[in-house]
Design a protein around this nucleic acid. Structure first.
Lengths: 124, 124
DNA sequence: GTCGTTGCAAAGCCTTTGCAGGGAA
DNA sequence: TTCCCTGCAAAGGCTTTGCAACGAC
């Protein structure tokens, strides 16, 4: 059976507070402010557990590496601003997959990553 | 100045022969058949060089890891079959990015990854 | 003869694992 | 009291780097 620990609660709290795509280093940083002894290995183990529980989603972001976000969000894509280096959610889905998937193929999931300049950075 | 070496020619040849998304281990394997002494570090160094030269493109495939393909191909997406584990090209672009990108944002590039079952695997 | 390139080994990241002690239930 | 969880350190993958020898030009 799963046990409630201060460490796991801290990690969960970080996701609730930040509500965005987080890098492991960020989770460790923010989590350490809540539970100072928080260890890297503990973070990895808990992320794995939260993934398996379906509470988190892991995203292998091109050129940024591994990121995590809460799984309860509705389907959306991400935009990476190369200038300010932020990643933001883009609500909705812009993929018309039936246009390019050959007959007989079954699409189970898809990932879309956009990058460029956000409004703030492009405006200057 | 760049020099022609047997090792670099071998790596280039592998990409021309295979003409598909390759993992580093595959590049090393196939390349070693051409130049048996071919070393891992040499592969990494040459891939980096070919990337900078714009001859190759690096792709961080979700859940598959780093892959490389030739850069001269026209824009396309990839489909990963979870049953046979192959990755295939899907010609064309199915993304209607203007549908979800807010005003003021400038999209410079995008990556789309589809996964599911290919026709062969879905047919059974 | 230069100096870019290679093979080898070591070092660097990021992530996982073994282990003994600690703490939730 | 049980046994899941944690911290620490070591070990594993993958990728990069230092260095001396090699070889393209």
């Amino acid at each position: 059976m799963k046990r409630q620990t201060a460490q796991r609660r801290a990690i969960v709290q970080v996701f609730k507070q930040q509500d965005r795509l987080l890098a492991i280093s960020e989770i460790l940083d923010y989590g350490s402010r809540i539970v100072p002894s928080l260890n890297q290995a503990t973070v990895y183990r808990n992320l794995k557990q939260l993934l398996e529980a379906g509470w988190l989603k892991q995203i292998n972001y091109p050129s940024l590496g591994t990121r995590y976000e809460r799984a309860h969000k509705i389907h959306h894509h991400h935009f990476h601003c190369k200038a300010c280096n932020r990643v933001m959610d883009l609500p909705g889905c812009a993929l018309k997959q039936e246009q390019i998937v050959p007959d007989g193929f079954v699409v189970q999931s898809h990932d879309v990553f956009l990058s460029g300049l956000c409004d703030r950075c492009a405006g200057r």
